[in-house]
Design a protein around this nucleic acid. Structure first.
Lengths: 206, 206
DNA sequence: AAATGAATTAATCAAATGATTAATAAAAAA
DNA sequence: TTTTTTATTAATCATTTGATTAATTCATTT
């Protein structure tokens, strides 16, 4: 966010949004109260309604921004026509894992709240772009050339995201059965940055 | 549940638990009110506290039972020492996908509520059993024999569960970008029953 | 049939929660 | 400086929500 756009927003407005985002991500929409948000952002309760009208509207703004930011980051790698499919695999594996390590609550939050509110998702133009990306095209070319096994591209994309994202959503379970600290867990996820591209290639290569 | 154990529980008790489970799975703990549960199960509000003392306790009972049932089903396949690793892969892929198609809200619900409450998970003996199962042992034997690539078994197990479970958690997204109905989506998941074992084998085979 | 205990109901409580209001302080414009 | 607009505060409202109570019905035992 540059200085110009930042100037548009008051300090309290930003404080409220930051606190609200943190709380929504940690506890979800329903478990977060407006008083939680007021306390956490150290502002008067009435300020929330003054700037955002209602808890629901505040949530929807945060949801939209978070989703938009997330999807933008997701798509970035996919459309670089200079890199090979294998390079893209490496890049996105690294990038997504770094992204989720930095904000581990994001995937669960997004999937969770999207489940109850699939409408807000309609407005995102980024969504369908993944399937029309250079990345998918490269896979399909590989299939034509006979290098890669043929399978519906949606499976291909789903599998990649599955092995990247899902382990984070299971982190409490994995940490428990393997006796890992948060730090250990992140090391394990970092290991996967290199492993995942190999696994995916093995999955598709003839 | 057989007749004997069933007789222990009154009709209303079961009605409350069924309605509560359905609501908790759909809306989560916080978004579900005791009055929702009373309405849905068609009982008097006071009955909830009469049989379960509090909303929290009702939730914990449901959570425990649901988790126990889920984990039990999960582990069943893993310890059959008559079947090969590849057979087990097929079996669990089919079984888990059928299980989740029958109750698609389960994974999100469990992972979600476990995030906030990792303690209840400690009591489950089933949890750590997966890593000590015959299934994992067979993989490690394969590694020794030089048939399979060596990787920490936790990655092996994580990958399998990832490609099975994660797509269900993304169902709203997948359905949106692919323009699928619920039925279409389930067909796609059913396709994966056969594909997943192949993918996993390709991932590990030298 | 009478007595006892369990199940059920309607009414109510106290606390929590989203939201508003009226008064005040701070900042910007005149 | 004065006026006007914007931001902030404490107090309050109306609902909602989890839980309880006292009265009543139903089932079981004696």
């Amino acid at each position: 966010m540059n200085i110009k756009t930042e100037a548009k927003y008051s300090n309290t407005e930003i404080k409220i949004k930051d606190a609200a985002k943190s709380l929504f991500l940690n506890k979800g929409y329903s478990a977060t109260t407006t008083r939680d948000i007021a306390r956490e952002s150290d502002i008067n309760l009435a300020m929330l309604n003054y700037y955002f009208r209602s808890k629901r509207r505040l949530f929807e703004i945060i949801m939209f921004e978070t989703l938009y930011e997330f999807l933008s980051k997701m798509v970035e790698v996919y459309n670089d026509d200079k890199t090979s499919l294998e390079k893209k695999l490496k890049l996105c594996s690294e990038k997504y894992i770094d992204m989720i390590i930095a904000e581990p609550l994001l995937p669960t939050f997004l999937l969770n709240e999207l489940k109850n509110n699939p409408t807000s998702f309609l407005k995102m133009p980024t969504t369908k772009m993944i399937m029309k990306s250079n990345f998918v095209a490269q896979y399909q070319e590989g299939v034509k050339k006979g290098i890669y096994r043929k399978v519906d591209p949606i499976h291909f994309v789903t599998n990649i995201l599955s092995v990247i994202v899902f382990p984070f959503m299971c982190s409490p379970i994995i940490m428990k059965i393997e006796n890992l600290s948060k730090k250990d867990f992140n090391i394990m996820m970092t290991e996967r940055k290199k492993l995942i591209p190999k696994w995916i290639i093995q999955m598709i290569k003839k």
